[in-house]
């Protein structure tokens, strides 16, 4: 399968699932943070369990990767900035009621303010790129 087309197809599936389960709803994300609605906690916990079991099954395969190359699980190393970075991300999550994936589903659904969250995310990533020029270990 061509990687670009494959990711386009899996992206459609991902966006469809996010939208159907309500992850693109401001009320469900913010509702989780203020203790009113735990639907998305259920979604995330289920996804983590299914993902973890799926990875264990995959590792039992004679050929875990279709092409035959060895499975290479990407690991994000722990940096001194991981915790402040996590907090900053969380602040944005609680304000917008969206994250980098769900905002895309919001845009597809026609939510205008999702476009502003999206534009802010691109700009925030740009700020990171500028900061990293001066602070290479960021």
């Amino acid at each position: 399968m061509d990687k670009k087309l494959g990711f386009l197809a899996f992206g459609v599936l991902f966006g469809f699932a996010l939208s159907r389960v309500g992850a693109s709803e401001y009320d469900l994300i913010v509702g989780m943070f203020i203790g009113q609605d735990y639907t998305l906690v259920g979604v995330m916990v289920t996804a983590i369990i299914v993902g973890a079991l799926g990875m264990q099954v995959l590792k039992k395969f004679a050929q875990p990767v279709k092409s035959g190359e060895p499975l290479k699980v990407s690991y994000k190393e722990l940096k001194k900035w991981s915790i402040p970075g996590g907090l900053i991300f969380g602040f944005g999550w609680g304000i917008t009621g969206a994250c980098p994936g769900t905002v895309l589903a919001q845009i597809g659904e026609g939510k205008i303010f999702g476009l502003f969250t999206f534009a802010g995310m691109i700009f925030g990533t740009y700020i990171y790129a500028r900061l990293k020029e001066k602070q290479p270990d960021l």
Binding site: K76, G92, F123, Y128
Partner: peptide, 17 residues
Amino acid sequence: FFFVGGILLGLGARIAG
């Protein structure tokens, strides 16, 4: 409001990896 929140999401995601 949503743009500012988006900046925090984009910046924080990159710093947190």
